[in-house]
Design a protein around this nucleic acid. Sequence first.
DNA 1: TTAGGGTTAG
Length: 652
Amino acid sequence: MRSPTIPRLSLSANAIHKFCFQDKSILPPPTPNHHLQQLSESRIISLLDSCTHLNHLKAVHASIYRCCLEQNRFVLTKLIRVLTNLNSPINGYPRAIFNQVQHPNCFLWTALIRGYVVSRLFHEAINLYDCMKRDCVRPNSFTFCTLFKAATLMGDVGLGCQLHGELFKLGGFGGSGFFLHAGNTLIDLYVKCGVMESARNVFDEMPVRDVVSGTSLIVAYAKGGAMEAAMELFDELDVKDVVVWTAMITSYSQNARPRDALEMFERMQGCAIEPDEFTLAGVISACAQLGTTKYSMCIRDIAERSGHGPERNVFIGSALVDMYSKCGRVDDAYAIFKVMRERNVYSYSSMILGFAVHGRAVEAMQLFCEMKKTDIRPNRVTLIGVLTACSHAGMVEEGRKLFKTMEETYGVTPTGDHYTCMVDLLGRSGHLEEALDLAKSMPIEPHGGVWGALLGACSIYNNPETAEIAASHLFELEPNNIGNYVLFANILSSAGKWDGVSRVRKLMRIKGLKKNPACSWVEGKKGIIHEFFAGDQTHPRFREIKQVLEDLLTRLRLHGYQPNLVSVSYDVSDDDKRQILMTHSEKLALAFELLSTESAHTIRIMKNLRICEDCHIFMCGASKITEREIVVRDNLRFHHFRDGSCSCGNFW
DNA sequence: TTAGGGTTAG
């Protein structure tokens, strides 16, 4: 029954006074001139609504005193809700108010139960619900909402089922829609407990296919990767508001389907639904994945115009930092970061990682030092960023030190991804043996990323023996990852081990794996994407492209450029190798950009695979003789070619 | 007067 610390009150005015006002720090007794102040009920409710601090209650406490005497359950229910929202200890003032009501109704019970749920005193809340039933007070939709919320917070799906049964006995979700809200909360409970079938059953049982519960289900489907089911449900909803549209957009974005996310965004605008800051954060994230600038600029404009600029909104700001960095504009990303008034671990992590993948390790480390002076704790993603910075700049000692102390200093236990960064750092800097030892001595089973990093390092240092070890693990862990086979075959071919190359190619044939074609793309005027595949001669301007490349080659040769024939992993003649090198996708894209852009324009090329050795040397030379800045994003990082050298310092 | 949607890596 009721808490033993608070006895049932007699209804004398003195007793009410004592229990309502005994704690002077919460609410001092009314002064004589406020005594029994005559405010109307609606005025009291409105004053209660505007309270944002317990002290504000002083303005109405004489009226509250009167409401206690008059047993005004409506005002007292509101008061308990307000006290709960202002974090007043539930067993103190709110409980005292409840206890002096002679016949509490369903609303008053529910307000009290809610207070206990908000205070995370779940068992007391459930006990009160039992008391309420014993007093023959019929629960309503709000009561069930509150109880389902408690079950959700407790993760107690059994309790949820039991309450579901009781609600069903009271008439289910009803034709009147009376229990609609409770149904939504129940669906949310089943969804959060991972019982999708029950959630769907409740949804199908409800008389109205409500957009709120529909959104819960859509998000749950999307989290499980079932985007088709999510889309189907979305199409079935009669009413679609900005929240459910946003849920679809961010779900596509989180499932690495940025084009679908942007398509949904355009559909939403077609339906004249205004995006809010939630929508924009999701759309910006999709733009970041695509790495295309034009669309991203438009979204930034929309954000600024609708008052959700990076200065005001930390979600938008962080998303913009990430987007600019992924579009190859790390300086723009930093400009955004600097104007943000609020920053969180996402903002810092995105910026640190941005500097890291753009080869600006010193700035990444400086920002990390700056972050450590704030109250924001680095998390596992931040540390991946810092280790990546060390890796791309060959800062071996700094990386070793951070990796050794990260658990103790930041409370982050190294995951497989942190080991990947470390193996990458050691491997890239030539410490192949130490990298191998680290992979072998991991306390957790190394995933494909770890062995992949080692294989990458073996490719840089032409070490087919260690590559053999890494590849054998990779072929077991990721039997269908074509990239591993190709990289291993390249390592063997560079070492002239043609027997090994045929062995790997045969393995690929048996498994039916086909090479992922190398592809580079650039963004033309009006955001049009021009794609170039390796060896592809079908572009309408191919003749001109070829001519530009030949001219460039002649000039580069005068500066000492020699084609790097080892970059071709086919057993063909040197002449053929030279031909193949000249049709690598990033070179085609470069020539196209030289043809179609002004001389002051920075050339930005995206590539799906790692840039090859020959193209890297070629781009360095091209940046010098054309006096153009060239930015190439490969599958892992950005290369900024300027005046004959690259920001990666040849560590990639 | 209760309920559904947001940013970093992989």
